[in-house]
Structures are given as structure tokens and as C-alpha cells.
């Protein structure tokens, strides 16, 4: 895990989540903007997967449980596509809120992943 990249990823996920929540509660259906925001969140998670695969090879290994880290990472990667798929199935304001919930959940998971990688030395 590259720390600065994770610190970029976190605010992006949170911002995307808040954006979708606000627009959703304002009654907007999923748009290019909100779906695009989720796509950015997903892209960063995919980059994180590549980083997590490569990093141990450069002597950068998780201090906590690698298994737990990967369960979080895979779950985080599944959320945005699932929410987007659902948003396309039924386009109403609540699908936008669901997009926001997914993006915020990714943010929480990324934060947990950072903890597992850096400070949790069990």
C-alpha cells in the first residue's frame, strides 16, 4: 500500500459519496456526473489492487493480516459496480443515494485497509 496514494483515494471516495448523497436527497436521478464519480472511485480501488499485489515485492508488506486486507479490498472493488448496476436498473433519486452510500463505504474500507497495512501489528 502506497500511503500517499491512499490519502488521495480517501478524500476522493468521501467527496464522491457526499456529492451523490446531496444530489440524491435533492431529487436528482443518477447522472453522468454521479456515475462518473463512482467510476473514479472504482478506478482508484483497482489501482490499489495493483499496488497491493506489487508492493510486497518491493519490501512493502502489510503489518496486519494480509487476508483481512484483501477481504476488504475485494469487497471495496465490488461495491461501486453493484451500486451503479442497481442505479441503471431503476433510475430514481434513491439510486443516487445508494451510489453515495457505496462510495462512502469504500472510503471507510480504504481507511480500515490503511490501518491494517500500517499500524496494526498484531
Amino acid at each position: 500500500m502506497i500511503e500517499w496514494f491512499t490519502w488521495v483515494q480517501l478524500p476522493v471516495a468521501v467527496a464522491a459519496g457526499l456529492l451523490c448523497l446531496v444530489l440524491g436527497f435533492a431529487g436528482r436521478v443518477p447522472s453522468d456526473l454521479t456515475l462518473g464519480a463512482l467510476a473514479v472511485v472504482e478506478l482508484l480501488v483497482l489501482v490499489q489492487i495493483v499496488v497491493a499485489i506489487a508492493a510486497p515485492g518491493f519490501g512493502n508488506s502489510p503489518t496486519g493480516s494480509a487476508l483481512e486486507f484483501w477481504v476488504y479490498l475485494v469487497s471495496a472493488a465490488l461495491l461501486p459496480p453493484a451500486a451503479a448496476f442497481w442505479a441503471l436498473l431503476e433510475r430514481n433519486r434513491w439510486s443516487t443515494v445508494v451510489l453515495g452510500v457505496a462510495a462512502l463505504s469504500v472510503g471507510v474500507m480504504v481507511y480500515r485497509m490503511l490501518q491494517i497495512w500500517t499500524v496494526q501489528s498484531v
Partner: peptide
């Protein structure tokens, strides 16, 4: 699940996923 119920279901889904993932890790390791 129409309307705001979708949000409820989404949050439940995320929590189910989180609890499932975590207990999987705990039991395996």
C-alpha cells in the same frame, strides 16, 4: 425495495458484506 427502502437495503447489503468478510477472516485465521 422501491423508494427509500432501496437505501435501507443497500446499507443492509454493505453491512452483510462487511460482517461476512470479517467473520470469514476471523474464523479462517
Amino acid at each position: 425495495m422501491s423508494g427509500i427502502g432501496r437505501v435501507l437495503v443497500a446499507v443492509y447489503g454493505v453491512l452483510a458484506l462487511a460482517a461476512l468478510g470479517r467473520s470469514f477472516v476471523q474464523i479462517v485465521s
